[in-house]
Design a binder for these strands. Structure first.
Lengths: 146, 146
DNA sequence: TCATTTTATTTGTATATACAAATAAAATGA
DNA sequence: TCATTTTATTTGTATATACAAATAAAATGA
């Protein structure tokens, strides 16, 4: 590869498929590092945060908020239940998810992780650019969902 | 959820982790649809395209160009070998990957898929915005790579 | 009121990808 | 020149996620 090329340069760097995937993987890695202190993967962490902040939230709501499918939400909840970080109660077809004392105890540390992640991102290119970027991506997301 | 909220709106829509992942999954889905005509997943398709255009390319080069790890490249190659779409030859520690007649025959159809994907993306928000977006993402990717 | 449809969740299974370790060849340098 | 280090690739295993089907409860409407 030509040494002047930056890392994203390739036959496909014009292609949104590559750019979007590469970005997601890199951000995933930064997030994974940030959440290591509490021994949670990013998606488990965000789900748990949501449950702590909205006790009793239902899986369907979690799916909508985290933009994941219901089946993925079920799998994440199962794992966190095993770790005694949350509990499920069922009534009819509805399920409510609640934090446990253990996870509530973890909450301040999780806030720190969230902040660490944000710092790690803004450290690379500056707060303004990350915010703008995130907004742009959100707007595109909305259009692609439409 | 407040009905005025757009789909990306949630407690975390300020978070690059969510935005980047959600975008990647949506783009992945559009790409998957585009490549269905040739019965290939997007990553298999892009790898195969690269091999057809650079016969003899080595796995390490593919990893760099497609921004995937070498182990993922090996796995993709194995699958495409099974489908008789490419072959590997080894000499010492180096491996060369070549297209087969079958894959060369597929090439024009693949070009069509590539174009379909591009049309599907630009159809949503316009060609200019997709190009700008992709460039911005690439720039951020480069910074995150260090 | 009860058959039908819709909604919420879970289960079975598959795909995409990565990390760490293994393998094996090539390059290096004392 | 040969022991050590580096490089390229593969293998074993794990994680994140989705789709389709199953389940089961609730809502609907004739």
């Amino acid at each position: 590869m030509c040494p002047i090329m930056k890392s994203s340069a390739s036959r496909f760097n014009k292609c949104l498929y590559f750019s979007a995937n590469a970005l997601a993987r890199k951000v995933e890695k930064i997030a994974t590092d940030s959440w290591k202190q509490v021994d949670l993967s990013p998606s488990h962490a965000y789900l748990l945060l949501t449950v702590i902040e909205e006790p009793g939230v239902q899986p369907g709501i979690l799916a909508a908020e985290l933009q994941l499918t219901p089946s993925t939400i079920t799998r994440l909840i199962e794992k966190l239940e095993q770790k005694k970080l949350l509990v499920r109660t069922s009534e009819g077809k509805l399920t409510n998810v609640y934090p446990t004392p253990k996870s509530k105890e973890l909450y301040p540390k999780m806030k720190t992780c969230l902040n660490d992640f944000y710092q790690a991102c803004t450290g690379v290119t500056g707060e303004g650019e990350i915010k703008r970027m995130t907004q742009h991506i959100n707007k595109l997301n909305d259009k692609l969902t439409g």
